[in-house]
Design a binder for these strands. Structure first.
Lengths: 142, 142
DNA sequence: CCAAGGCTGAGAATGGTTCTCATGCCCCGA
DNA sequence: TCGGGGCATGAGAACCATTCTCAGCCTTGG
């Protein structure tokens, strides 16, 4: 199960790109970013690496309204949620102790088992506020 | 903006299929269901109709972990969340007054504006419990 | 240093969703 | 009731994100 992963320059490049930002990025964006930087990595490899990292809890994954997957390396590996800028993808890790218990309680009261929950907050961060020098969505599409 | 929608038998069929269940269904499932029932409707029309209904707040939409869109006609049109059975798709509408305020508060404290939130609960309903006569996932895939 | 087998990448394949466009038919006005 | 404008329909192509294929490459254990 716990398969040993080889350290290749491609994996290092993807991991590096993730470490360099606190914004959620799509596989395609990361691929393009690596290409521009010169660290050309195959798209398939980017997907495979992200998949492996996600499976190992190394990165967090969430879906945009149109179903695209976004990845981000978070500081903590424990369960947490995010407040994400819908424009640039910048994210802040947040806790929701109240939500946790509420979710479990509601689920149980309805007779459901194996309760899990999806809780994400979306907003517009200060840099992306329409007023000031708007950051022209270098991140999230849509 | 508020465009007038013509009432066609296709739209009636899709709406009817949605009214007949309290489970979240994908466009493909609804299409197949209508076909089996004899009310053949083009897949494109199913998608268009669901899109229109969703835009008008007539149906709720959510995404599975793999990005597929699921639709359900809910009793209430006001903001609410769901507790969904990950096996059959059956859903219960739930409120989260605490969550609402928590979300707004957290968002504001981080300087984000136009806060919105995604909160869905997933579990296994009584009928889908592995023990008893398991309902063989007539609903949700995966 | 070497062999074994995981890793890579270009391109094909998948699968959900949307678009195209010729034809169909709802609904309003006369 | 009849006619027609124009939204609605549907088969198939197009899109797009993601996954699969497979021959050749490269990391790693010994």
């Amino acid at each position: 199960m716990t398969q040993q992963l080889r350290m290749t320059k491609q994996r290092a490049a993807v991991a590096g790109a993730l470490d360099a930002t606190d914004e959620f990025r799509s596989a395609q964006q990361l691929h393009e970013q690596l290409r521009d930087r010169g660290d050309a990595v195959g798209l398939a490899t980017v997907y495979r690496t992200l998949q492996a990292l996600a499976a190992g809890g190394e990165v967090d994954v969430l879906r945009t309204d149109d179903g695209e997957a976004l990845y981000r390396r978070c500081a903590r590996t424990e369960h947490h949620h995010h407040l994400v800028c819908r424009s640039c993808g910048r994210a802040v890790e947040i806790d929701g102790p109240t939500v946790e218990s509420w979710a479990a309680q509601v689920g149980a009261s309805q007779g459901f088992t194996d309760i899990e929950h999806t809780v994400e907050l979306w907003g517009t961060c200060t840099d992306c506020r329409p007023s000031a020098g708007r950051k022209v969505r270098p991140g999230i599409p849509q």
